[in-house]
Design a protein around this nucleic acid. Structure first.
Length: 562
RNA sequence: GCGCCUUUAACUCAGCUGGAUAGAGUAACUGCCUUCUAAGCAGUAAGCCAUAGGUUCGAAUCCUAUAAGGCGCGCCA
Protein backbone atom coordinates (compact mmCIF):
# COMPACT_ATOMS: atom_id res chain seq x y z
CA UNK A 1 0.00 0.00 0.00
CA UNK A 2 2.95 2.32 0.57
CA UNK A 3 4.08 2.94 -2.99
CA UNK A 4 6.82 5.34 -2.00
CA UNK A 5 8.49 2.89 0.35
CA UNK A 6 8.11 0.08 -2.18
CA UNK A 7 9.72 2.14 -4.93
CA UNK A 8 12.51 3.23 -2.64
CA UNK A 9 13.20 -0.37 -1.65
CA UNK A 10 13.16 -1.35 -5.28
CA UNK A 11 15.74 1.31 -6.16
CA UNK A 12 17.97 -0.02 -3.41
CA UNK A 13 17.55 -3.57 -4.65
CA UNK A 14 18.41 -2.53 -8.21
CA UNK A 15 21.65 -0.97 -7.03
CA UNK A 16 22.63 -3.89 -4.83
CA UNK A 17 21.94 -6.28 -7.68
CA UNK A 18 24.04 -4.21 -10.06
CA UNK A 19 26.86 -4.10 -7.52
CA UNK A 20 26.72 -7.86 -7.14
CA UNK A 21 26.92 -8.27 -10.87
CA UNK A 22 29.89 -5.90 -11.08
CA UNK A 23 31.77 -7.78 -8.40
CA UNK A 24 31.07 -11.08 -10.15
CA UNK A 25 32.43 -9.62 -13.35
CA UNK A 26 35.38 -8.26 -11.39
CA UNK A 27 34.61 -4.78 -12.68
CA UNK A 28 34.94 -3.52 -9.12
CA UNK A 29 36.83 -4.98 -6.17
CA UNK A 30 34.88 -7.03 -3.64
CA UNK A 31 35.10 -4.54 -0.81
CA UNK A 32 32.54 -4.12 1.97
CA UNK A 33 30.66 -0.93 1.08
CA UNK A 34 29.12 1.59 3.46
CA UNK A 35 25.35 1.96 3.67
CA UNK A 36 23.85 4.33 1.16
CA UNK A 37 20.66 6.36 1.14
CA UNK A 38 17.72 6.61 -1.21
CA UNK A 39 16.01 9.95 -1.08
CA UNK A 40 13.48 12.05 -2.86
CA UNK A 41 15.36 14.95 -4.48
CA UNK A 42 14.15 18.44 -3.72
CA UNK A 43 14.42 19.26 -7.38
CA UNK A 44 12.30 16.80 -9.30
CA UNK A 45 14.21 17.35 -12.53
CA UNK A 46 16.67 15.04 -10.81
CA UNK A 47 14.21 12.20 -10.98
CA UNK A 48 11.88 10.72 -8.39
CA UNK A 49 14.49 8.96 -6.29
CA UNK A 50 18.20 9.56 -5.95
CA UNK A 51 20.86 7.28 -4.50
CA UNK A 52 24.24 8.36 -3.19
CA UNK A 53 25.69 4.83 -3.38
CA UNK A 54 28.51 5.82 -5.70
CA UNK A 55 29.62 8.75 -3.59
CA UNK A 56 29.75 6.91 -0.30
CA UNK A 57 31.59 4.00 -1.94
CA UNK A 58 34.28 6.11 -3.60
CA UNK A 59 36.76 5.67 -0.80
CA UNK A 60 36.38 1.91 -0.39
CA UNK A 61 36.55 1.26 -4.13
CA UNK A 62 39.27 3.85 -4.76
CA UNK A 63 37.43 5.10 -7.81
CA UNK A 64 35.85 8.44 -8.67
CA UNK A 65 32.14 8.51 -7.73
CA UNK A 66 30.94 9.34 -11.21
CA UNK A 67 32.79 6.36 -12.65
CA UNK A 68 31.23 4.05 -10.06
CA UNK A 69 27.80 5.46 -10.76
CA UNK A 70 28.23 4.85 -14.47
CA UNK A 71 29.28 1.24 -13.85
CA UNK A 72 26.28 0.66 -11.59
CA UNK A 73 23.85 2.17 -14.04
CA UNK A 74 25.42 0.15 -16.87
CA UNK A 75 24.92 -3.07 -14.93
CA UNK A 76 21.39 -2.28 -13.81
CA UNK A 77 18.29 -4.17 -14.85
CA UNK A 78 15.07 -2.13 -14.64
CA UNK A 79 12.58 -4.64 -15.94
CA UNK A 80 10.28 -5.65 -13.12
CA UNK A 81 11.07 -2.45 -11.20
CA UNK A 82 8.72 0.54 -10.98
CA UNK A 83 11.24 2.66 -12.89
CA UNK A 84 11.45 3.52 -16.53
CA UNK A 85 14.74 5.38 -16.47
CA UNK A 86 17.93 5.60 -14.43
CA UNK A 87 20.80 7.98 -15.03
CA UNK A 88 23.93 9.42 -13.52
CA UNK A 89 23.93 13.07 -12.57
CA UNK A 90 25.91 15.70 -10.70
CA UNK A 91 28.78 14.45 -8.58
CA UNK A 92 27.63 10.83 -8.93
CA UNK A 93 23.98 10.60 -7.97
CA UNK A 94 22.03 7.71 -9.43
CA UNK A 95 18.63 9.11 -10.34
CA UNK A 96 15.55 6.98 -10.89
CA UNK A 97 12.46 8.02 -12.77
CA UNK A 98 9.16 6.31 -12.04
CA UNK A 99 7.24 4.66 -14.83
CA UNK A 100 3.73 5.57 -15.83
CA UNK A 101 2.44 2.32 -14.40
CA UNK A 102 3.54 3.33 -10.92
CA UNK A 103 1.37 6.45 -11.11
CA UNK A 104 -1.55 4.41 -12.32
CA UNK A 105 -1.17 2.00 -9.43
CA UNK A 106 -1.17 4.82 -6.90
CA UNK A 107 -4.43 6.34 -8.10
CA UNK A 108 -6.05 2.94 -8.27
CA UNK A 109 -4.96 2.09 -4.74
CA UNK A 110 -6.23 5.38 -3.35
CA UNK A 111 -9.62 4.90 -5.00
CA UNK A 112 -9.92 1.30 -3.88
CA UNK A 113 -8.78 1.90 -0.30
CA UNK A 114 -10.93 4.97 0.34
CA UNK A 115 -11.01 5.83 4.03
CA UNK A 116 -8.42 3.17 4.75
CA UNK A 117 -5.84 4.77 2.52
CA UNK A 118 -2.87 6.07 4.47
CA UNK A 119 -3.19 3.73 7.42
CA UNK A 120 -0.23 1.54 8.23
CA UNK A 121 0.58 -1.24 10.63
CA UNK A 122 3.84 0.14 11.93
CA UNK A 123 2.61 0.16 15.51
CA UNK A 124 1.64 -3.46 15.27
CA UNK A 125 -0.86 -3.19 18.08
CA UNK A 126 1.53 -1.63 20.59
CA UNK A 127 -0.56 -0.17 23.41
CA UNK A 128 0.01 3.54 23.86
CA UNK A 129 -1.55 5.91 26.35
CA UNK A 130 -1.56 9.56 25.32
CA UNK A 131 -2.17 11.91 28.20
CA UNK A 132 -2.82 15.52 27.31
CA UNK A 133 -4.33 18.76 28.57
CA UNK A 134 -4.82 17.51 32.16
CA UNK A 135 -5.63 21.07 33.14
CA UNK A 136 -6.21 21.89 36.77
CA UNK A 137 -9.90 21.54 37.55
CA UNK A 138 -9.67 24.69 39.63
CA UNK A 139 -10.41 26.98 36.72
CA UNK A 140 -10.96 27.33 33.00
CA UNK A 141 -8.52 26.13 30.37
CA UNK A 142 -6.08 28.51 28.76
CA UNK A 143 -4.49 28.86 25.37
CA UNK A 144 -1.68 26.49 26.32
CA UNK A 145 -4.29 23.81 27.02
CA UNK A 146 -5.81 24.55 23.63
CA UNK A 147 -2.51 23.86 21.95
CA UNK A 148 -1.89 20.74 24.02
CA UNK A 149 -5.39 19.53 23.25
CA UNK A 150 -5.03 19.88 19.52
CA UNK A 151 -1.59 18.31 19.48
CA UNK A 152 -2.41 15.45 21.83
CA UNK A 153 -5.68 14.59 20.18
CA UNK A 154 -4.21 14.57 16.67
CA UNK A 155 -1.18 12.66 17.83
CA UNK A 156 -3.48 10.00 19.23
CA UNK A 157 -5.29 9.86 15.88
CA UNK A 158 -2.00 9.56 14.04
CA UNK A 159 -0.82 6.75 16.27
CA UNK A 160 -4.07 4.90 15.74
CA UNK A 161 -3.71 5.33 11.98
CA UNK A 162 -0.17 3.98 12.22
CA UNK A 163 -1.39 0.80 13.83
CA UNK A 164 -0.94 1.54 17.51
CA UNK A 165 -3.65 0.68 19.99
CA UNK A 166 -4.11 4.15 21.38
CA UNK A 167 -6.05 5.56 24.31
CA UNK A 168 -6.58 9.17 25.32
CA UNK A 169 -6.48 10.16 28.95
CA UNK A 170 -7.06 13.22 31.09
CA UNK A 171 -5.43 13.28 34.52
CA UNK A 172 -7.61 15.17 36.99
CA UNK A 173 -5.56 16.95 39.65
CA UNK A 174 -8.29 16.69 42.26
CA UNK A 175 -6.00 16.39 45.25
CA UNK A 176 -3.13 18.22 46.85
CA UNK A 177 -2.17 21.79 47.26
CA UNK A 178 -3.99 23.37 44.38
CA UNK A 179 -7.24 21.95 45.71
CA UNK A 180 -6.45 23.58 49.06
CA UNK A 181 -5.88 26.81 47.23
CA UNK A 182 -9.13 26.29 45.38
CA UNK A 183 -10.86 25.76 48.73
CA UNK A 184 -9.32 28.90 50.18
CA UNK A 185 -10.36 30.95 47.19
CA UNK A 186 -13.93 29.67 47.33
CA UNK A 187 -14.07 30.14 51.07
CA UNK A 188 -13.02 33.78 50.96
CA UNK A 189 -15.43 34.55 48.13
CA UNK A 190 -18.23 32.76 49.97
CA UNK A 191 -17.60 34.63 53.20
CA UNK A 192 -17.50 37.83 51.21
CA UNK A 193 -20.88 36.85 49.77
CA UNK A 194 -22.05 36.43 53.34
CA UNK A 195 -21.14 40.04 53.91
CA UNK A 196 -17.84 39.56 55.68
CA UNK A 197 -15.03 41.91 54.82
CA UNK A 198 -12.14 39.54 54.14
CA UNK A 199 -9.40 40.34 51.64
CA UNK A 200 -8.58 37.84 48.91
CA UNK A 201 -5.07 36.41 49.47
CA UNK A 202 -2.52 37.32 46.81
CA UNK A 203 -1.86 33.77 45.72
CA UNK A 204 -5.50 32.69 45.56
CA UNK A 205 -7.41 32.14 42.33
CA UNK A 206 -8.63 35.58 41.36
CA UNK A 207 -10.88 34.57 38.47
CA UNK A 208 -14.52 35.50 38.13
CA UNK A 209 -15.44 31.81 37.99
CA UNK A 210 -14.57 31.47 41.67
CA UNK A 211 -16.91 34.32 42.57
CA UNK A 212 -19.65 32.73 40.48
CA UNK A 213 -19.26 29.42 42.31
CA UNK A 214 -19.31 31.15 45.70
CA UNK A 215 -22.40 33.14 44.79
CA UNK A 216 -24.20 30.07 43.50
CA UNK A 217 -23.31 28.23 46.69
CA UNK A 218 -24.53 31.18 48.72
CA UNK A 219 -27.77 31.33 46.76
CA UNK A 220 -28.36 27.70 47.66
CA UNK A 221 -27.26 27.67 51.29
CA UNK A 222 -27.34 31.29 52.36
CA UNK A 223 -25.12 32.08 55.33
CA UNK A 224 -25.50 28.54 56.71
CA UNK A 225 -21.83 27.73 56.23
CA UNK A 226 -20.50 30.98 57.63
CA UNK A 227 -20.60 29.78 61.18
CA UNK A 228 -19.52 26.16 60.84
CA UNK A 229 -16.10 24.68 61.27
CA UNK A 230 -13.69 25.76 58.51
CA UNK A 231 -12.97 22.25 57.29
CA UNK A 232 -16.65 21.48 56.88
CA UNK A 233 -17.17 24.72 55.00
CA UNK A 234 -14.21 24.17 52.70
CA UNK A 235 -15.16 20.57 51.96
CA UNK A 236 -18.71 21.61 51.15
CA UNK A 237 -17.51 24.33 48.82
CA UNK A 238 -15.09 22.02 46.98
CA UNK A 239 -17.71 19.27 46.76
CA UNK A 240 -20.03 21.86 45.26
CA UNK A 241 -17.67 23.48 42.78
CA UNK A 242 -15.23 20.77 41.71
CA UNK A 243 -17.68 18.47 39.90
CA UNK A 244 -19.07 21.51 38.11
CA UNK A 245 -15.58 22.44 36.98
CA UNK A 246 -14.78 18.93 35.82
CA UNK A 247 -18.01 18.79 33.90
CA UNK A 248 -17.09 22.18 32.45
CA UNK A 249 -13.76 20.79 31.27
CA UNK A 250 -15.53 17.87 29.64
CA UNK A 251 -18.03 20.14 27.90
CA UNK A 252 -15.41 22.58 26.69
CA UNK A 253 -13.18 19.83 25.38
CA UNK A 254 -16.13 18.16 23.67
CA UNK A 255 -16.82 21.43 21.91
CA UNK A 256 -13.19 21.26 20.84
CA UNK A 257 -13.94 17.74 19.50
CA UNK A 258 -11.83 16.01 22.12
CA UNK A 259 -13.19 12.89 23.77
CA UNK A 260 -11.18 10.89 26.25
CA UNK A 261 -11.22 7.17 26.89
CA UNK A 262 -10.42 7.82 30.53
CA UNK A 263 -10.67 10.64 33.04
CA UNK A 264 -8.23 9.57 35.71
CA UNK A 265 -8.63 11.29 39.09
CA UNK A 266 -5.50 11.76 41.15
CA UNK A 267 -7.58 11.19 44.28
CA UNK A 268 -7.91 7.49 43.46
CA UNK A 269 -4.13 7.12 43.79
CA UNK A 270 -4.38 8.48 47.32
CA UNK A 271 -7.46 6.47 48.17
CA UNK A 272 -6.10 3.09 47.06
CA UNK A 273 -2.78 3.54 48.82
CA UNK A 274 -0.71 3.90 45.63
CA UNK A 275 0.92 7.10 46.80
CA UNK A 276 2.13 5.71 50.12
CA UNK A 277 2.98 2.46 48.36
CA UNK A 278 5.25 4.30 45.94
CA UNK A 279 7.07 5.98 48.80
CA UNK A 280 7.71 2.56 50.33
CA UNK A 281 8.92 1.20 47.01
CA UNK A 282 11.25 4.14 46.52
CA UNK A 283 12.64 3.60 49.99
CA UNK A 284 13.13 -0.08 49.22
CA UNK A 285 14.97 0.83 46.03
CA UNK A 286 17.75 2.27 48.17
CA UNK A 287 17.72 5.59 46.40
CA UNK A 288 16.30 7.65 49.25
CA UNK A 289 17.82 9.37 52.24
CA UNK A 290 16.71 11.69 55.03
CA UNK A 291 17.91 15.24 55.35
CA UNK A 292 16.52 18.14 57.42
CA UNK A 293 13.59 15.98 58.44
CA UNK A 294 12.53 15.40 54.84
CA UNK A 295 12.81 12.32 52.63
CA UNK A 296 14.92 12.87 49.53
CA UNK A 297 15.28 10.92 46.35
CA UNK A 298 18.73 10.41 44.81
CA UNK A 299 17.76 11.44 41.33
CA UNK A 300 21.22 12.68 40.48
CA UNK A 301 22.55 9.13 40.59
CA UNK A 302 19.97 8.18 37.98
CA UNK A 303 20.63 10.89 35.47
CA UNK A 304 18.59 13.84 36.71
CA UNK A 305 20.15 17.22 37.44
CA UNK A 306 19.59 17.15 41.19
CA UNK A 307 18.05 15.25 44.04
CA UNK A 308 14.57 16.22 45.15
CA UNK A 309 12.29 15.94 48.16
CA UNK A 310 9.55 13.35 48.04
CA UNK A 311 8.19 13.71 51.57
CA UNK A 312 8.34 17.09 53.24
CA UNK A 313 9.36 17.49 56.86
CA UNK A 314 5.69 18.05 57.67
CA UNK A 315 5.02 14.49 56.45
CA UNK A 316 3.14 15.47 53.32
CA UNK A 317 4.44 14.03 50.04
CA UNK A 318 5.40 16.50 47.33
CA UNK A 319 3.45 16.69 44.08
CA UNK A 320 5.92 14.43 42.28
CA UNK A 321 4.94 11.40 44.30
CA UNK A 322 1.39 11.12 42.95
CA UNK A 323 2.87 11.78 39.52
CA UNK A 324 5.30 8.92 39.92
CA UNK A 325 2.50 6.71 41.18
CA UNK A 326 0.38 7.76 38.23
CA UNK A 327 3.02 6.88 35.66
CA UNK A 328 3.73 3.62 37.46
CA UNK A 329 0.03 2.94 37.17
CA UNK A 330 0.10 3.58 33.43
CA UNK A 331 3.13 1.44 32.64
CA UNK A 332 2.98 -1.31 35.24
CA UNK A 333 -0.52 -1.61 36.66
CA UNK A 334 -2.32 -1.00 33.37
CA UNK A 335 0.51 -2.43 31.27
CA UNK A 336 0.64 0.14 28.51
CA UNK A 337 3.72 -0.45 26.38
CA UNK A 338 4.28 3.24 26.05
CA UNK A 339 3.08 6.39 27.76
CA UNK A 340 3.17 9.74 26.02
CA UNK A 341 2.62 12.98 27.91
CA UNK A 342 2.03 16.33 26.28
CA UNK A 343 3.40 18.96 28.64
CA UNK A 344 4.24 22.63 28.62
CA UNK A 345 7.94 23.32 28.18
CA UNK A 346 8.03 24.84 31.65
CA UNK A 347 7.93 21.24 32.93
CA UNK A 348 11.08 20.22 31.14
CA UNK A 349 13.18 20.13 34.29
CA UNK A 350 10.77 17.73 35.86
CA UNK A 351 10.92 15.05 33.18
CA UNK A 352 14.36 13.61 34.06
CA UNK A 353 13.27 13.41 37.70
CA UNK A 354 10.14 11.49 36.90
CA UNK A 355 12.17 9.17 34.69
CA UNK A 356 14.78 8.69 37.39
CA UNK A 357 12.08 7.65 39.82
CA UNK A 358 10.63 5.18 37.33
CA UNK A 359 14.09 3.73 36.80
CA UNK A 360 14.48 3.27 40.54
CA UNK A 361 11.17 1.41 40.51
CA UNK A 362 12.51 -0.98 37.90
CA UNK A 363 10.51 0.50 35.02
CA UNK A 364 12.25 1.10 31.70
CA UNK A 365 11.98 4.89 31.59
CA UNK A 366 12.29 4.98 27.81
CA UNK A 367 8.72 3.71 27.68
CA UNK A 368 7.68 7.19 28.77
CA UNK A 369 8.06 9.95 26.21
CA UNK A 370 7.25 13.52 27.07
CA UNK A 371 6.39 15.84 24.21
CA UNK A 372 7.18 19.34 25.35
CA UNK A 373 5.39 22.29 23.85
CA UNK A 374 6.70 25.77 23.85
CA UNK A 375 4.69 28.83 24.71
CA UNK A 376 1.96 30.28 22.55
CA UNK A 377 1.96 33.98 21.85
CA UNK A 378 -1.52 35.10 20.84
CA UNK A 379 -1.57 38.00 18.39
CA UNK A 380 -4.48 40.29 17.64
CA UNK A 381 -4.22 43.33 15.36
CA UNK A 382 -0.52 42.59 15.12
CA UNK A 383 -0.05 42.97 18.85
CA UNK A 384 0.42 40.31 21.51
CA UNK A 385 -2.63 39.62 23.67
CA UNK A 386 -1.61 39.88 27.31
CA UNK A 387 -1.86 36.67 29.26
CA UNK A 388 -2.18 37.24 32.97
CA UNK A 389 -2.82 34.10 34.96
CA UNK A 390 -2.59 35.83 38.31
CA UNK A 391 -5.47 38.15 37.67
CA UNK A 392 -7.43 35.30 36.11
CA UNK A 393 -7.76 37.30 32.93
CA UNK A 394 -5.89 34.96 30.60
CA UNK A 395 -7.51 34.10 27.30
CA UNK A 396 -9.45 30.88 27.80
CA UNK A 397 -10.12 28.02 25.40
CA UNK A 398 -13.80 28.94 25.42
CA UNK A 399 -13.29 32.59 24.53
CA UNK A 400 -10.79 31.55 21.88
CA UNK A 401 -13.44 29.34 20.31
CA UNK A 402 -15.87 32.24 20.39
CA UNK A 403 -13.44 34.19 18.23
CA UNK A 404 -12.35 31.53 15.79
CA UNK A 405 -13.88 28.32 14.42
CA UNK A 406 -12.89 24.98 15.94
CA UNK A 407 -11.54 23.94 12.53
CA UNK A 408 -9.15 26.87 12.50
CA UNK A 409 -8.02 26.37 16.09
CA UNK A 410 -7.29 22.68 15.66
CA UNK A 411 -5.50 23.21 12.36
CA UNK A 412 -3.47 26.18 13.56
CA UNK A 413 -2.27 24.51 16.73
CA UNK A 414 -0.99 21.66 14.61
CA UNK A 415 0.73 23.91 12.12
CA UNK A 416 4.05 23.94 13.94
CA UNK A 417 5.74 21.18 15.78
CA UNK A 418 5.15 21.15 19.53
CA UNK A 419 8.68 22.06 20.33
CA UNK A 420 8.64 25.42 18.60
CA UNK A 421 7.57 28.75 19.92
CA UNK A 422 4.27 29.49 18.31
CA UNK A 423 2.65 32.72 17.32
CA UNK A 424 -1.12 32.39 16.97
CA UNK A 425 -2.53 35.11 14.76
CA UNK A 426 -6.23 35.46 15.59
CA UNK A 427 -6.88 37.67 12.60
CA UNK A 428 -5.26 35.23 10.19
CA UNK A 429 -7.25 32.32 11.59
CA UNK A 430 -10.53 33.87 10.44
CA UNK A 431 -9.22 35.26 7.19
CA UNK A 432 -10.60 33.71 4.03
CA UNK A 433 -7.62 33.55 1.72
CA UNK A 434 -4.65 31.50 0.72
CA UNK A 435 -2.70 33.00 3.60
CA UNK A 436 -4.99 31.08 5.90
CA UNK A 437 -3.96 27.46 5.52
CA UNK A 438 -7.22 26.03 6.88
CA UNK A 439 -9.30 27.71 4.22
CA UNK A 440 -6.75 26.94 1.57
CA UNK A 441 -7.03 23.22 2.29
CA UNK A 442 -10.79 23.20 2.81
CA UNK A 443 -11.24 25.19 -0.37
CA UNK A 444 -9.38 22.54 -2.32
CA UNK A 445 -11.80 19.94 -1.02
CA UNK A 446 -14.86 22.06 -1.73
CA UNK A 447 -13.55 22.73 -5.21
CA UNK A 448 -13.20 19.01 -5.90
CA UNK A 449 -16.71 18.33 -4.67
CA UNK A 450 -18.07 21.12 -6.80
CA UNK A 451 -16.21 19.88 -9.84
CA UNK A 452 -17.51 16.35 -9.43
CA UNK A 453 -21.00 17.73 -8.83
CA UNK A 454 -20.72 19.68 -12.03
CA UNK A 455 -19.79 16.56 -13.97
CA UNK A 456 -22.82 14.78 -12.57
CA UNK A 457 -25.08 17.68 -13.48
CA UNK A 458 -23.79 17.46 -17.04
CA UNK A 459 -24.79 13.81 -17.05
CA UNK A 460 -21.22 12.68 -17.19
CA UNK A 461 -21.22 9.62 -15.02
CA UNK A 462 -18.03 8.29 -13.59
CA UNK A 463 -16.40 5.59 -15.68
CA UNK A 464 -16.21 2.11 -14.22
CA UNK A 465 -12.96 1.69 -12.27
CA UNK A 466 -11.64 -1.15 -14.41
CA UNK A 467 -12.16 0.75 -17.65
CA UNK A 468 -10.37 3.86 -16.43
CA UNK A 469 -7.31 4.71 -18.48
CA UNK A 470 -5.28 6.25 -15.71
CA UNK A 471 -2.16 5.97 -17.81
CA UNK A 472 -3.38 9.04 -19.67
CA UNK A 473 -2.42 11.15 -16.64
CA UNK A 474 1.01 12.16 -17.84
CA UNK A 475 1.51 15.88 -17.42
CA UNK A 476 3.71 17.35 -14.74
CA UNK A 477 0.88 18.72 -12.57
CA UNK A 478 -0.84 15.34 -12.70
CA UNK A 479 2.27 13.42 -11.80
CA UNK A 480 3.18 15.76 -8.97
CA UNK A 481 -0.29 15.49 -7.53
CA UNK A 482 -0.17 11.69 -7.70
CA UNK A 483 3.23 11.57 -6.04
CA UNK A 484 1.81 13.60 -3.19
CA UNK A 485 -1.08 11.17 -2.87
CA UNK A 486 1.43 8.35 -2.67
CA UNK A 487 3.21 10.05 0.20
CA UNK A 488 0.42 9.85 2.78
CA UNK A 489 1.27 6.48 4.38
CA UNK A 490 4.90 7.54 4.75
CA UNK A 491 3.81 10.84 6.32
CA UNK A 492 1.61 9.08 8.83
CA UNK A 493 4.44 6.76 9.73
CA UNK A 494 6.86 9.62 10.16
CA UNK A 495 4.40 11.62 12.21
CA UNK A 496 3.87 8.62 14.48
CA UNK A 497 7.55 7.90 14.80
CA UNK A 498 8.49 11.49 15.55
CA UNK A 499 5.33 12.09 17.58
CA UNK A 500 4.75 15.11 15.41
CA UNK A 501 1.23 15.60 14.06
CA UNK A 502 2.23 18.89 12.44
CA UNK A 503 3.49 16.85 9.53
CA UNK A 504 -0.14 16.28 8.60
CA UNK A 505 -1.08 19.93 8.27
CA UNK A 506 2.03 20.52 6.19
CA UNK A 507 1.13 17.55 4.04
CA UNK A 508 -2.43 18.79 3.61
CA UNK A 509 -1.31 22.28 2.58
CA UNK A 510 1.10 20.82 0.04
CA UNK A 511 -1.54 18.48 -1.33
CA UNK A 512 -4.01 21.35 -1.66
CA UNK A 513 -1.40 23.46 -3.46
CA UNK A 514 -0.68 20.67 -5.94
CA UNK A 515 -4.37 20.20 -6.54
CA UNK A 516 -4.94 23.90 -7.18
CA UNK A 517 -2.08 23.83 -9.69
CA UNK A 518 -3.53 20.78 -11.39
CA UNK A 519 -6.95 22.41 -11.44
CA UNK A 520 -5.57 25.45 -13.13
CA UNK A 521 -3.53 23.55 -15.70
CA UNK A 522 -5.83 20.66 -16.55
CA UNK A 523 -9.41 20.87 -17.68
CA UNK A 524 -11.53 18.00 -16.49
CA UNK A 525 -15.00 18.37 -17.99
CA UNK A 526 -13.61 19.83 -21.21
CA UNK A 527 -10.63 17.53 -21.55
CA UNK A 528 -9.56 16.56 -25.05
CA UNK A 529 -11.05 13.08 -24.86
CA UNK A 530 -13.68 11.34 -22.76
CA UNK A 531 -11.04 8.88 -21.54
CA UNK A 532 -8.78 11.66 -20.31
CA UNK A 533 -11.75 13.40 -18.71
CA UNK A 534 -12.65 10.26 -16.81
CA UNK A 535 -9.09 9.67 -15.73
CA UNK A 536 -8.84 13.24 -14.43
CA UNK A 537 -12.16 12.97 -12.67
CA UNK A 538 -10.83 9.86 -10.97
CA UNK A 539 -7.72 11.74 -9.92
CA UNK A 540 -9.92 14.48 -8.45
CA UNK A 541 -11.96 11.91 -6.57
CA UNK A 542 -8.75 10.32 -5.26
CA UNK A 543 -7.42 13.69 -4.13
CA UNK A 544 -10.69 14.50 -2.40
CA UNK A 545 -10.57 11.19 -0.63
CA UNK A 546 -7.03 11.77 0.62
CA UNK A 547 -7.85 15.30 1.76
CA UNK A 548 -10.78 13.92 3.73
CA UNK A 549 -8.58 11.26 5.29
CA UNK A 550 -6.06 13.84 6.47
CA UNK A 551 -8.68 16.28 7.71
CA UNK A 552 -10.40 13.44 9.54
CA UNK A 553 -7.20 12.70 11.42
CA UNK A 554 -7.01 16.35 12.39
CA UNK A 555 -10.75 16.38 13.18
CA UNK A 556 -11.19 19.33 10.87
CA UNK A 557 -14.26 19.39 8.66
CA UNK A 558 -14.02 18.83 4.91
CA UNK A 559 -16.80 21.06 3.49
CA UNK A 560 -18.43 20.15 0.18
CA UNK A 561 -19.32 23.77 -0.50
CA UNK A 562 -17.76 27.04 0.56
C1' G B 1 25.72 30.06 37.77
C1' C B 2 23.37 25.45 35.56
C1' G B 3 19.77 23.18 32.12
C1' C B 4 16.11 23.10 27.94
C1' C B 5 14.19 25.62 23.48
C1' U B 6 14.76 29.19 19.47
C1' U B 7 17.74 32.11 15.65
C1' U B 8 16.70 30.73 7.57
C1' A B 9 13.74 36.76 2.71
C1' A B 10 10.83 43.00 5.31
C1' C B 11 6.90 39.49 8.32
C1' U B 12 5.22 34.21 9.75
C1' C B 13 7.58 29.80 8.86
C1' A B 14 9.15 24.80 5.69
C1' G B 15 13.65 22.42 4.71
C1' C B 16 12.62 14.54 6.47
C1' U B 17 17.86 10.11 9.12
C1' G B 18 23.97 15.62 5.95
C1' G B 19 23.27 15.83 -0.68
C1' A B 20 22.82 18.71 -6.44
C1' U B 21 20.93 26.11 -7.87
C1' A B 22 18.06 27.24 0.17
C1' G B 23 11.73 26.88 -0.41
C1' A B 24 6.31 28.45 0.72
C1' G B 25 2.68 32.08 2.29
C1' U B 26 2.15 37.36 3.63
C1' A B 27 3.44 42.28 2.25
C1' A B 28 5.27 45.00 -2.93
C1' C B 29 4.95 44.89 -8.31
C1' U B 30 2.83 42.29 -13.14
C1' G B 31 -0.39 39.07 -15.64
C1' C B 32 -4.74 35.13 -15.94
C1' C B 33 -12.20 34.42 -15.07
C1' U B 34 -18.13 34.74 -21.96
C1' U B 35 -15.43 27.69 -19.93
C1' C B 36 -15.37 22.68 -13.88
C1' U B 37 -15.55 27.65 -7.08
C1' A B 38 -10.38 33.96 -8.61
C1' A B 39 -11.25 31.67 -0.89
C1' G B 40 -7.45 30.00 -7.16
C1' C B 41 -3.08 30.05 -10.64
C1' A B 42 1.39 32.07 -13.12
C1' G B 43 5.41 35.60 -12.92
C1' U B 44 9.01 39.67 -10.90
C1' A B 45 11.71 41.27 -6.78
C1' A B 46 13.64 39.76 -1.90
C1' G B 47 18.78 35.45 1.77
C1' C B 48 26.38 36.30 4.78
C1' C B 49 20.69 30.04 6.67
C1' A B 50 22.90 34.71 14.04
C1' U B 51 28.75 34.60 14.42
C1' A B 52 33.48 31.84 14.50
C1' G B 53 35.83 27.34 14.17
C1' G B 54 35.59 21.86 13.32
C1' U B 55 33.99 16.92 11.17
C1' U B 56 33.85 15.08 5.13
C1' C B 57 33.58 13.76 -1.23
C1' G B 58 29.53 17.44 0.41
C1' A B 59 26.91 21.26 6.15
C1' A B 60 21.07 25.49 6.85
C1' U B 61 21.26 20.25 8.66
C1' C B 62 26.23 16.98 12.77
C1' C B 63 30.14 18.74 16.85
C1' U B 64 32.41 22.88 19.86
C1' A B 65 32.50 27.91 21.37
C1' U B 66 30.17 32.87 21.21
C1' A B 67 25.97 36.27 20.79
C1' A B 68 20.71 37.49 21.08
C1' G B 69 15.69 36.06 22.71
C1' G B 70 12.14 32.62 25.41
C1' C B 71 11.46 29.13 29.56
C1' G B 72 12.93 26.48 33.81
C1' C B 73 16.25 25.40 38.13
C1' G B 74 11.44 25.42 45.99
C1' C B 75 10.18 20.92 51.73
C1' C B 76 4.83 25.29 44.90
C1' A B 77 2.14 22.31 41.32
Amino acid sequence: MNHIAAASDSARACILEALGRLVAEQAIPAEPLPAFGIEIPADRSHGDFAANAAMVSAKALRMPPRKIAELIVGAMELSGSPFEKVEVAGPGFINFTLSNKWYTDVVRTVLQSGEEYGKTNTGNGTRVLVEFVSANPTGPMHVGNARGGAIGDCLASVLTAAGYETEREFYINDAGNQIEKFATSLEVRYLQACGQDIPMPEDAYQGADIIAHANAFHAEHGDAYAGVDAKERRDALVAFALPKNIQGLKDDLAQYRIHYDTWFPESTLHADGSVTGIIEQLKASGYTYEKDGALWFQAEKLGADKDFVIVRSNGIPTYVVPDIAYHYNKLVTRKFNRAIDILGADHHGYVPRLKAALTALGVDASRLTVVLMQMVAVMRDGKPVKQSKRSGKALTLVTLLEDIPVDAARFFFNLREANSHFEFDLDLAVEKSASNPVYYVQYAHARICSLLRNLAENDISAAAPDTLQLGLLQTKPEHELIRQLALLPAEIDQAARQLDPSRLTKYAVELAALFHKFYDACKVRDAETAELRDARAALCAATGSVLRNVLTLLKVSAPEKM
